[in-house]
Design a binder for these strands. Structure first.
Lengths: 207, 207
DNA sequence: CATGTAAGTAAGTAATTACTTACTTACAGT
DNA sequence: ACTGTAAGTAAGTAATTACTTACTTACATG
């Protein structure tokens, strides 16, 4: 077995995600990592410190994985709406498919809970979200410059866009698909609203 | 002191909300309610059962409080966009102002965590969200019939709308206002996108 | 006054938890 | 062969936890 520390970190991510910080026991984490409990304490000193290390460990992984750029469609001749539609589906697909991402998402949910009690956790969560929002903001900024988009605060647009996917994917994980219905249709509905708005076109002549 | 049970239920809501289900101790709840711990067990048998009762107890309160109808603007001569803008601000205001609502929101966050482990909790959460979404769906349906809105799936629109506020208000609670910036501006940005979409109007001639 | 009910006090139980100490084993590099 | 390092085993500690038992107090109602 290689790299004991990493195995403990991975196990901790999983157990924290599924049990919450308080619910996760060091015994369970050690077992999940196939190490003796004492090894965990030798390497990480305390449970609290372990959480901190998990955070650091995944910060870098998040930044490379959650980089949206590879999720944008390859062909560049599509219009903005189609592009966003494909991007949205790719995000949703990536969220559903990748098992490790599911764990990360649940870990994020734990961070939400824990963030209210630990400022460092809140801060980590904040920078995590930032990573998702920034590249999208830049993308929107470009689209505005290219005249494809109205002159909207790109940050507002990013938060609305990313927020939708964070929110619905968490919902799906927790209360199942029944509530939200078919994934693709739901996303289409959102993208439709996001790009065109809900108003009738003839009522929009003032803009 | 009147109605011991209700005092325990209120205290439980608070403690569950701030500590999470696992983190909340029966001792702490009893202390918060100014009762002996044994009284708590006499009335509610077990911690698990107490959670269930808190859920039931607040289900009815939620349904009357979270009814959106009273948040709609009184004057009926405003256009849809203005109406939604006011509604959005009222929701945000209600979420920020009412302290008990803040507790409920945090309680909801706990439900998210706990819902993954307890199907009854997930189900309670689901019906809670339903209560928020249904009246809005009906409202949108009416607007479509009145020709004010495009023919969009009203449920999609409701989820997008409610989801935004649930999501951002949780974010604000957890990682503070720094991340999202000024509340009113942010909401304006969202309503703008929600009603008009992000596309340039001249690109929308196809619709 | 008698009696039932809602509450408290006190003490304790069995399990679990984070974390420690002391010792042993396996192995890699010199 | 010697030695340092990374790991395991075993046992235990002090605190906490959900929950119980047995008894007492206060009070309202018939």
């Amino acid at each position: 077995m290689e790299d004991t520390e990493q195995r403990i970190l991975d196990a901790a991510l999983r157990v924290f995600a599924s049990e919450g910080y308080t619910g996760a026991t060091t015994r369970r984490i050690a077992k999940e990592a196939n190490v003796a409990e004492v090894t965990l304490f030798r390497k990480f000193k305390s449970k609290e410190n372990l959480l901190k290390e998990v955070l650091i460990n995944n910060r870098t992984i998040f930044s490379s994985l959650d980089d949206l750029s590879h999720l944008f469609p390859k062909e560049k001749n599509v219009d903005l709406e189609t592009e966003l539609r494909i991007l949205g589906k790719n995000i949703a697909k990536a969220m559903r498919d990748r098992k490790k991402d599911s764990k990360r998402r649940m870990f994020m949910l734990m961070l939400f809970e824990e963030g209210r009690r630990r400022p460092e956790v809140a801060e980590a969560l904040s920078s995590l979200l930032q990573m998702n929002i920034n590249p999208l903001s830049e993308y929107f900024e470009l689209q505005i410059k290219n005249g494809k988009m109205r002159n909207i605060n790109p940050r507002s647009a990013s938060i609305t866009f990313v927020g939708y996917f964070v929110h619905t994917s968490l919902l799906r994980e927790v209360i199942g698909d029944g509530f939200l219905g078919n994934n693709d249709e739901e996303i289409d509905g959102f993208i439709d609203i996001f790009t065109k708005g809900i108003l009738k076109v003839e009522d929009m002549k003032n803009r």
